[in-house]
Design a protein around this nucleic acid. Sequence first.
DNA 1: AAAAAACTCAACCGCGTCGAG
DNA 2: CCTCGACGCGGTTGAGTTTTT
Length: 322
Amino acid sequence: MQEAGGGITSSSKTPSNNGKEEGGGMALKKGPWMAEEDEILIEYVRKHGPRDWSSIRSKGLLPRSGKSCRLRWVNKLKPDLKTGCKFSPEEERIVIDLQARFGNKWARIATYLPGRTDNDVKNFWSTRQKRLARILRTPLPSRSNKNHGKMPVPSHQLPNLEDPSLDRILFEGDGQCSQEASKMTQMRDILSPVPLDLHTALPLLELELAMEKEPCLSDTAPPSQPPFDHLPHPLVGLPVLPEDAPGLSPGFGDASFPEELACPEPPPEGLPFLGLDAGHDGIERVDEHPGDFFDDLPADMFDYLEPPTPPPPPPPASSTSW
DNA sequence: AAAAAACTCAACCGCGTCGAG
DNA sequence: CCTCGACGCGGTTGAGTTTTT
């Protein structure tokens, strides 16, 4: 990976300044950071703290924009980052759940993942999206694809469910899971163009993805995870959002979502799995608008499905599985 | 072994927000 | 109230790496 010391001293990207930021005298430098630059930045933060980024350039310390300095610090230099470590299944589950809750609020989601940055979460989600799209042979939403989500997937574009390669695609990774056979069957059920209960399908699909990777060592025995320190479980600590929570739209991702509700605090009862129905009659029902929830799954993923049938009677809250 | 495809991740850009003047 | 600069965030890009064909 291109990294400090790589010798690249100019940007490989379009050399246009934002136009907004920084009027320092030094010529703006872009592109990969050098080790010496990192040292200077670290030293600056050590002395002044992670603030006043723009003064780094105005003081002539670095020919970098404040924005670039901040990004470098946040994403690479900040202590306790889990750099070079893949997302554990646990982390993946957290991202999946929080993404359903908050939408693409990566910075917010990252606060629940010690050692992860918003960039990490964003990249993870992007990768996941691409893989899902590839599995389903479905084009990703793109700037050029204005029809995203509007047209059903033609049947000929659906995967061949009997194709043995599907097994490999779906189970790339260790592939040793004892649940493999049943997952495969269920996965095919998901992909099968027959009416299907999405409440069943989605968690399975996400489980599928989460099980592809093995956790890194630091995840199996996390030393200290500040945001979760006081939580019995990473997700159990998430608040159960009342439907009438002020500022919370049914579609999540509402920036006006009150912080006090986001403050991790053990809910009175178990957190419903993936925000799916835990029951009726006042019990949390995050997925009031399935379309919102599904927005971040691959384009057209479920277009060929019948509308979801009403969920079966809710299981007892204690049945939440992990 | 080579080529192609997929994946990873650092870094940039544009935009929105906020606070100071 | 308005303007402006700084900051933070989400989206995007593309080079490098790894895996698959």
